[in-house]
């Protein structure tokens, strides 16, 4: 009997990386300046996770993909107009902040609660996907904690490749230091996979998939419940963008090796 999966991808939205991101201290804690007006995208690591999930589901007929997102639902709706055209999925929405300053513990609890609320979810077939980092702040902890809450202790982070063998066993390549991968195996679902970039390109938009997804997405957005985030127990003394300067130099004559050498020398200081 072929292996089927129930793949839940956790992913929030973040401001488009090209936008000017200026942390400010608001009345309820840190936020980004003009955050609500900035165009958003699905968190890039979750983006990769979603495409990997859809590809896995396609290769294992009978599998299904859910995207579980804690985001401001009005902003999420805009993101869905593009994302929904990429791959088939069912959306589960928790209406909450996406600034990256929410408490990771409370965020994990809210997302775990939403996953537990998915009707007829077969936990024995559950693969919990997400990004191993986030473009909003990147505690790198939420996905792990969701796994813990759901009782899944097979966890892998920095995943670039997932292979399923004939017996349903999983072989996973995880990024480790020095540009190397660690190959791991586990017997099968349930497991948590925090994806790095994966191996798949961005699928082209397919409006037919979009229209199909939209039948479920719009009701999901309308029915989204607010996340119960108290914010108690967490405070920020200050927030600021990483200090960096974008120094652009246009080089039209340098070959690739020379460019690589210069970058390597700069990295080494």
């Amino acid at each position: 009997m072929p292996t089927t999966y129930q793949i839940v991808v956790c992913g929030g939205i973040v401001p488009d990386p090209l936008q000017s991101l200026e942390p400010v201290m608001g009345p309820t804690g840190p936020a980004l300046k003009n955050e609500m007006m900035l165009p958003s995208v699905l968190d890039p690591w979750a983006w990769h996770a979603l495409f990997e999930a859809a590809d896995l589901a396609k290769r294992h007929p009978g599998s299904k993909v859910w995207l579980v997102s804690m985001s401001p639902k009005a902003k999420l709706q805009q993101v869905m107009m593009g994302l929904a055209q990429k791959v088939p999925f069912e959306l589960v929405v928790v209406d909450g902040p996406a600034s990256g300053f929410a408490d990771a513990v409370e965020t994990a609890a809210a997302l775990a609660g939403a996953i537990e609320g998915i009707p007829d979810l077969d936990r024995s077939k559950l693969l919990l996907f997400g990004g191993w980092q986030s473009a909003s702040r990147g505690t790198g902890a939420v996905l792990q904690m969701i796994g813990e809450i759901l009782g899944i202790d097979e966890q892998f982070q920095g995943v670039d490749k997932l292979t399923v063998d004939d017996s349903g066993g999983l072989e996973i390549l995880e990024r480790i230091e020095a540009g190397a991968w660690q190959k791991s195996r586990c017997a099968g679902a349930p497991a948590v996979l925090g994806w790095a970039t994966g191996e798949l390109p961005e699928p082209p938009n397919n409006p037919q998939i979009g229209m199909q997804n939209m039948r479920g997405i719009m009701p999901a957005l309308q029915q989204a419940k607010p996340a119960a985030l108290s914010g108690e127990g967490l405070s920020y003394d200050s927030v600021e963008s990483p200090k960096q300067r974008r120094e652009t130099r246009v080089e039209t004559e340098m070959d690739a090796d020379a460019i690589a050498d210069e970058i390597a020398a700069w990295l080494k200081g």
């Binding site: 805009q78 107009m81 593009g82 929904a84 055209q85 938009n205 409006p207 939209m214 719009m218």
Partner: peptide, 13 residues
């Protein structure tokens, strides 16, 4: 009109 909004996103891409 989410059909139009999707068309916008497709064209923008």
């Amino acid at each position: 009109r989410f059909d139009l909004q999707m068309a916008v996103q497709s064209a923008r891409g």
